[in-house]
Design a protein around this nucleic acid. Structure first.
Lengths: 227, 227
DNA sequence: TTAGCATTCAAACGTTCGTTTAACTACCGA
DNA sequence: TCGGTAGTTAAACGAACGTTTGAATGCTAA
């Protein structure tokens, strides 16, 4: 937590985080025991409590390690986009691509554990534990705010409520797509290797999400906040 | 297991299933202990093992109780739609509405536990346990097959791979939307009561999903990464 | 060398887990 | 009336859980 020595740069900590990432993805939080985890990381059983304090604190650390830089990258991508467009509103599709980029680039990093994390993240959006969802939400909030503002500038004619819902839908599509491991095969025989051609996936996701975001307003007679 | 008296027709079984549905939704499978569960159901601790055999078998029973009739309803809705249209291909939006209907009608059933189940179901699509995902997939398979065929007839120009992916995206959007409890508020201040106006939600979801399903194909004419 | 600190380690802590047992109750057909 | 079946009950089972302990280890600075 303080100034660190230069010698062994948190090797034990890192090994624990890597093992936790993989095992949490595979078996869930409660389904992964400290004994499994420390065995996989090849560290002592007490190491987790020594370095992180508790299992819950470890879970939080697993998310902070990746999510902070990922969302920073997301915001940076949006800012660069806005810089290039002067004060013109951006195309919705470009905003979508900027948002997807950070996740999809990470899913290509199979060796470094990025793919594990992304899948874990996709699952955790709907984790039953309120505490964990709150953490994820808190870590996402700044990026979410910026992107919402960008979409509002890009689509001034789309009612605010509708935008919020459509962002919700978009987020869900992404989360589910990232979390799913073999669900595609459920729908139809589909070569699962496709899923990791990130460029192709990005094109498909972007087309689908842009179609949904720009769809005509719902309802025959334009459902508004009638209530 | 035989003819039942008139008084308590599986009352214990039903109470266990109801309590399990609620607690699994709230705390997850591993996060719910048999002692919590039997206390909530006001039955003896041993009752679950007596009536279902094991906790895992109880989990399976929870899903079978609701999913079998729900998917039967889904298929029936599609068949009625096809009957009304003679041999004409259906409008994609009508197919989407038929698919959504079963889920959204159930989410309005708050008293009967349907809402609990639907949220639980949304979460379980991405459950880490392979066994559970396999069960869900197996229970969904027949309906999925029929709807895929209907979409193929409705959109003959859409390549097969693309359809599979877009159905995957649609399924993800629905699952996430149903599973989420307070995620909408994460994106923006939004009255959470809105979520349970099923008619409004159906209109919004249908518009979004139809927009995505019918979106222009990704690739050459649309891909122009402007750096 | 020695004192101080961060880290690792084997062992044990008390608790809770899912499941099993055997005794007990209520009811129905013979 | 009686025997058998279905269901309920309190108590206990061994195993696994997250966490804590106190001693041992290795390194750095004085």
């Amino acid at each position: 937590m303080s100034l660190r020595a230069i010698k062994p740069p948190h090797e034990t900590r890192t090994r624990i985080l890597d093992a936790a990432e993989a095992l949490f993805m595979q078996h869930g939080f409660e389904g992964t025991s400290m004994r499994q985890l420390t065995a996989e990381a090849e560290v002592n059983l007490a190491a987790v409590n020594y370095h992180f304090g508790s299992k819950d604190a470890l879970i939080e650390a697993v998310f902070r390690r990746r999510l902070d830089p990922m969302n920073a990258e997301r915001i940076a991508a949006l800012e660069q986009l806005e810089k290039g467009a002067a004060s013109q509103p951006l195309a919705a599709e470009a905003i979508i691509r900027a948002f997807l980029g950070a996740s999809l680039r990470m899913i290509e990093d199979a060796r470094g554990g990025g793919r594990n994390f992304i899948r874990l993240l996709g699952r955790t959006y709907t984790d039953p534990t309120k505490q964990i969802r709150a953490l994820i939400g808190q870590l996402y909030a700044p990026a979410m705010k910026r992107y919402k503002a960008a979409f509002m500038r890009s689509l001034p004619e789309l009612p605010h409520d509708e935008l919020v819902w459509r962002m919700h839908f978009m987020f869900g599509t992404l989360a589910y797509t990232l979390a799913a491991t073999d669900t595609v095969q459920l729908i139809a025989g589909c070569k699962p290797e496709d899923r990791y051609d990130a460029r192709l996936l990005e094109d498909r996701l972007t087309a689908f999400l842009a179609g949904g975001l720009l769809a005509p307003l719902p309802g025959r007679d334009n459902v508004r906040k009638a209530a």
